Amino acid sequence: MAIKEKQNVILNYELKINDEIVDTNINKEPIQFVYGSGQIIQGLEDGIKQMNQGETKVIKIPSSKAYGAYDEELSEVVDIKEFEGIDLQIGMILEAQNDKNEVIKATVTEVTNDKVTVDYNHPLAGCDLEFKVIIHSII
């Protein structure tokens, strides 16, 4: 029977970007989530909708249904003095709170003697995703 709203889905996945595996839980603990609750990206929910228990499927998701387009305006250059005491490394994920007390994350993309470039885009923004999904159970 195909997945319906509010059912618990247990699955394993392999995520590829440009034919390169970037994440997987194949041969590891599967993930579990409530279908239709927004716990996974919309494109993946749409892709598994007609799947049944025991089924395997490759699902291609455009960036628009994953983490959105890459937005150049979400990158900024900040004075390095703002990061005093932090051993900055390119690729490092920094966390802070915005004026609404929400946690925001930024990736360090460049470090010079006096400036740091941080990127607030999701690390997978602008990427088309390819998932291999194995549905273990639908409860």
Rank of each mutant, 00 (worst) to 15 (best):
K4R: 15
K6L: 13
Q7H: 14
L11W: 09
N12H: 12
N12W: 04
Y13F: 09
L15R: 01
I21W: 04
I21D: 06
I26S: 09
I26W: 14
N27H: 12
N27P: 10
N27S: 14
K28S: 11
E29H: 12
P30N: 02
F33I: 02
F33L: 09
S37D: 08
G38D: 00
Q39T: 05
G43L: 03
L44K: 01
E45V: 07
I48L: 07
K49N: 05
K49L: 08
M51G: 08
M51E: 10
N52I: 07
Q53G: 14
T56Y: 07
K57L: 06
I59M: 04
I59C: 04
K60E: 12
P62C: 05
A66T: 02
A66W: 00
G68H: 09
Y70E: 03
E73N: 15
L74Y: 13
S75D: 11
V77A: 13
D79I: 15
K81D: 14
K81H: 14
F83W: 10
G85K: 11
I86R: 04
I93G: 01
I93S: 04
L94K: 00
L94E: 00
A96Y: 06
N98P: 07
V103R: 05
I104Y: 13
A106S: 12
A106C: 08
T107D: 00
E110R: 11
V111H: 00
T112L: 01
N113H: 13
V116G: 00
V118S: 04
Y120P: 01
N121P: 06
H122V: 08
L124T: 03
A125V: 06
G126E: 05
D128Q: 03
K132S: 02
I135G: 08
I135P: 07
H136I: 14
H136M: 12
I138V: 15
